[in-house]
């Protein structure tokens, strides 16, 4: 992806310095707020509520322990994991076959399906929580982990379809055809040739689905009461919870997502880039 206009030829020293400084400032702009959150989460509650703040944390797990021990937190964490896991499984299992079909076949209705997928982009999807709340009451899925996972899957599915579509499209069809001429049927060719090649990408798209669900607030808050996920729990305790609970909660919310993103960083651009075209 080396596309750039060549900045080095004829570039002055001053220009290079201001370029470097701008890049570093932008890095700080991203990193400092995260540092401050984590610094807060690793400070004792007294320091978190005290004033003025120290820039170095006291490194003390009291806030985190308080958060974990707080009524409803472990349950919310568990709900979050369940919902995110279900979302991940459903998004990949439903999305990947569609992505494969789009990449390998020409058929009537293909563009209609693509339009439907792209339409989901132009709609504020969290609003789906409203009608779903009513639908779920009718079928007994209200306030359930599974019900929320369905809404989150709607959020994650279009991405899963487009990402797997680009993954499958990236694998030359000749590889599959070669397998067919060497004695495989369609399923065998898929299992022996295509699947091993897309597995890392599928894993990355699964992680994306997981993070999508893990981070979602609005639908989770509207659709759950007893089975609140962590974001829904935090949202509802914003008014009355002490500061150290919020910051510890925020840190617990942020860290897994960062970790996951680190593992899929290689796929970030191919996925978001292509999926968004």
């Amino acid at each position: 992806m080396s596309t750039a206009p060549n900045m080095v030829v004829g570039q002055s020293k001053a220009a290079r310095w201001s370029f470097n400084i701008a890049v570093i400032l932008l890095c700080l702009w991203v990193l400092v707020p995260i540092y401050l959150l984590i610094s807060n989460a690793l400070s004792a509650p007294a320091d978190v509520n005290g004033f003025p703040k120290k820039l170095l944390p006291s490194v003390n797990t009291e806030s985190v322990e308080f958060f974990i021990g707080f009524y409803g937190v472990t349950k919310a964490l568990w709900s979050s994991v369940q919902v995110a896991f279900l979302t991940m499984v459903m998004a990949v299992l439903i999305g990947a076959p569609a992505g494969y079909a789009l990449s390998r076949f020409d058929f009537r209705g293909k563009s209609l399906f693509r339009i439907m997928i792209l339409m989901t982009r132009a709609f504020p999807l969290p609003l789906l929580a409203l009608p779903m709340a009513i639908m779920f009451i009718k079928v007994g899925l209200d306030d359930t982990v599974f019900g929320l996972a369905i809404v989150h899957t709607t959020l994650a599915l279009p991405f899963a379809v487009l990402i797997t579509y680009s993954l499958f499209s990236g694998i030359p069809i000749e590889l599959e055809e070669a397998a067919w001429t060497l004695g495989c049927n369609r399923l065998q060719a898929f299992i022996k040739v295509i699947f091993p090649l897309v597995l890392p990408g599928i894993t990355a798209s699964a992680i994306f689905a997981f993070v999508t669900s893990w981070n979602e607030v609005f639908a989770a808050a509207v659709l759950t009461i007893e089975n609140r996920t962590l974001p829904a729990f935090l949202l509802q305790s914003l008014d009355d919870a002490p500061l150290h609970l919020k910051f510890a909660g925020g840190a617990v919310l942020v860290l897994p997502a960062l970790l996951f993103l680190f593992f899929v960083r290689k796929y970030l651009f191919s996925m978001w880039g292509i999926a968004n075209r």
Binding site: P172, E174, L175, E177, A178, T181, L182, C184, V193
Partner: peptide
């Protein structure tokens, strides 16, 4: 018949050597 039952082998333009 599907390709596997035709008793043929094929060599592709881009070789299609399985990368894994």
């Amino acid at each position: 018949l599907p390709p596997k039952d035709r008793g043929i082998a094929m060599v592709f333009q881009n070789y299609a050597v399985f990368p894994h």
